[in-house]
């Protein structure tokens, strides 16, 4: 048994292969537990129906239909909430001790986290596509150019991916699946509801409006909304990218440094 010593190599190609290996493992989980995907899609669908048919009539939006205002908010919210699966999956791995096995293997140290977030990104692609379909069913239409519409969806997914790292950092800090999910939603909730996701910010009190105008969820939704309605993206797009870059830098480093010491 001691004859072969596994070759010791290092480098980017191996790191990427480790990430793909871990992503494959997590994707298998998603495919084999379709019920999770189904139930996690029900909540955003309820939000669409609730706001489209219950609250929507009472909400006045400047120019255009409310359904075209609403869906970009729903897309971003769905992608954001999808990040919670990163927290749950990661803390379950920690709890079951399988992370110890991975850390004792000669694989890239970043692969557990990167593989997890990439699998969750793939999961988000499915969920967001489903929401697009639901949106089209309730009357939402893309009005931007083809490139702008695809770009908008790309921005939604990138934003969701960014928050996967926030959830990963939270999971590594609290170490328990249920707590991780609850703790992860703490910052997400005010960001989603004190934003331009469902209602125009003009009716909010000044202090709240000032917050809502600059926070990452609002600027990203505004950018996505501008792209899919064919309006000029103004300052929203670059502000969204600045937020994404800042959040990634901060939370990727927190998550990786915490991962090294778990």
């Amino acid at each position: 048994m001691t004859e072969d010593i596994a070759p010791v190599r290092n480098g980017w190609d191996l790191g990427i292969r480790d990430i793909l290996g871990m992503a494959w493992r997590n994707l298998v989980h998603i495919v084999r537990t379709p019920q999770l995907l189904v139930f996690s899609s029900i909540q955003p669908i309820m939000f669409v129906l609730l706001f489209r048919y219950v609250f929507g009539g009472a909400i006045k939006t400047p120019g255009g239909d409310y359904v075209d205002y609403l869906l970009p908010g729903i897309f971003v919210q769905t992608a954001l909430f999808g990040g919670a699966s990163t927290a749950v999956g990661l803390s379950e791995d920690l709890k079951q001790g399988i992370v110890d096995r991975f850390r004792a293997l000669p694989m890239a140290r970043s692969a557990v986290l990167a593989g997890r977030t990439i699998a969750d990104l793939c999961r988000n692609v499915i969920v967001v596509l489903l929401m697009v379909a639901v949106g089209l069913l309730v009357g939402f239409r893309f009005h931007g150019s083809f490139v702008a519409d695809i770009g908008a969806m790309g921005l939604v997914l990138l934003f969701g991916y960014t928050f996967s790292w926030v959830f990963a950092a939270v999971a590594l800090a609290v170490r328990d699946p249920e707590t991780a999910q609850l703790a992860g939603f703490l910052p997400i909730f005010p960001l989603v509801f004190a934003s331009s996701a469902f209602v125009p910010v003009q009716t909010m009190p000044t202090w709240l409006r000032d917050f809502a105008n600059v926070q990452p969820v609002s600027v990203t939704i505004d950018a996505v909304r501008a792209l899919v309605t064919g309006a000029p993206v103004g300052h929203w797009l670059w502000q969204s990218f600045v937020w994404i870059a800042a959040i990634l830098v901060v939370f990727v480093s927190i998550a990786i440094s915490r991962y090294r010491t778990v």
Binding site: I5, P7, Q96, G97, I98, D100, R101, L105
Partner: peptide
Amino acid sequence: RSVIGLAGQYAAVD
């Protein structure tokens, strides 16, 4: 890491 194996009380399998 490439020459050791670890097995433990947690049965760390997927």
